[in-house]
Design a protein around this nucleic acid. Structure first.
Lengths: 220, 220
DNA sequence: ATTTTTGTAATAATCGATTATAGATAATAT
DNA sequence: ATATTATCTATAATCGATTATTACAAAAAT
């Protein structure tokens, strides 16, 4: 009986489902998370739900106030700026380490990830907005690939959480930033290949700040 | 019936107790966390325990592998260096923001925190090592005060977790680094008062790297 | 009329019991 | 004798039920 290692337990899958639903806005910011309701919606017991919610609490996607239960973490313009600044700090640093340590394997990962992302961006540009989640998945994979040779598990972990919080803000504004973002991704790829860290960092900074401005302009 | 707001629930206090026991080494790195045993030791139900453990999982103090239960996060020289680098990155950045935004209130907090720490360091120097936990509490309060005006809740949160992970490594080597650390704290205080960020950052970097070398030398 | 008290319903926190899984040991087959 | 399967035991994951807390509403008091 060979057990497939990536079999998900009930607890793991409700954790992922909740996390996904918060990031992609199906659970609104600041919404009360009533346990009975969630129990029905996700078909798990209260105890298992509470375990998943507790994981999300230390991750910052869920807040808990006194003994008055759980709430989806609120969102604000200030919060977006904080998260964006943090992402810039962490990702620029990881990028530098990665550029210094990356080997040919790494280059191949970056090129492959960019290819997938680039194809998706072409589809988006030509009006096909059906697969926003897949697009964002590829965006993640590209940025992840760029920093994947940084050599620090701890740095990659905290970056991952911050990235997903940033993503949550991006998901609120439904529109595709399109051309500028695609051009910046291309510039990142090119600087990675020639290990031009200072260009890469300044492109990345503008890339993230551009996303912030796009978001804030949308939401008014 | 006026309810004191900082009353701790059973779940909150077992979370804090577990976290404390991991950081201060009462629960050894990589140790299996058997639920029945913990239930007896901390006098709570399995369900409540599991909620606390799940919080610690996303925080990185506890690991969970498949459905084989919970383990204390392992420690390693590489892990220490990763955490130290992360602390340097986050704390130097927060320090800069704090120096730019800090007002007189902030200066007062920094001075007060340094005073408490400094007095404790004098006691440690004269051989009184009875209050290691209190000393580390004051160390935390001083570093926290220095960056407290940085203006980013998100940055302070992630720094807090990283700081505690660094602290966990420091707690393994039982000795007091003494004079050098105290001198560096003084230098940090002085640069804060005159807003000399570049000196402060270089002192802080040395302060943290010094702690790493001290740890690694101890543990052989 | 406003504030305080008291009772009640809704909901969260906690627990003990049940089910499922993994690891170890014994039994069987080649 | 070794490898494979079956059985058993320890432990984790999950659940339903119980207890405690909060929020709301109605009544009473100033």
């Amino acid at each position: 009986m060979h057990n497939v290692s990536h079999e998900l337990s009930v607890g793991d899958s409700v954790y992922e489902a909740l996390r996904h639903d918060i990031i992609f806005g199906r659970l609104a910011p600041s919404a009360k998370l009533k346990l009975d309701r969630l129990k029905a919606d996700y078909s798990v017991s209260i105890a298992t739900l509470r375990e998943a919610l507790n994981r999300l609490v230390t991750e910052g996607f869920v807040k808990t106030e006194g003994q008055r239960g759980f709430f989806v973490a609120p969102m604000s313009a200030a919060g977006l700026r904080e998260i964006a600044d943090l992402r810039i700090l962490l990702e620029c640093h990881a990028l530098k380490l990665s550029f210094e340590a990356g080997d040919t394997e790494w280059e191949a990962r970056v090129i492959a990830a960019h290819h997938k992302l680039s194809r998706m961006e072409e589809r988006m540009k030509s009006g096909d907005h059906s697969a926003k989640e897949v697009w964002k998945q590829y965006d993640w994979e590209f940025h992840q690939a760029l920093i994947s040779a940084c050599g620090s598990e701890a740095l990659l972990n905290v970056h991952g959480t911050v990235f997903d919080k940033y993503l949550r803000y991006q998901m609120r504004t439904l529109t595709f930033r399109g051309d500028p973002a695609a051009i910046e991704h291309r510039a990142l790829l090119d600087s990675a290949m020639v290990r031009d860290i200072s260009t890469a960092q300044s492109v990345l900074r503008k890339h993230i700040e551009g996303g912030v401005e796009h978001s804030l302009a949308q939401s008014g």
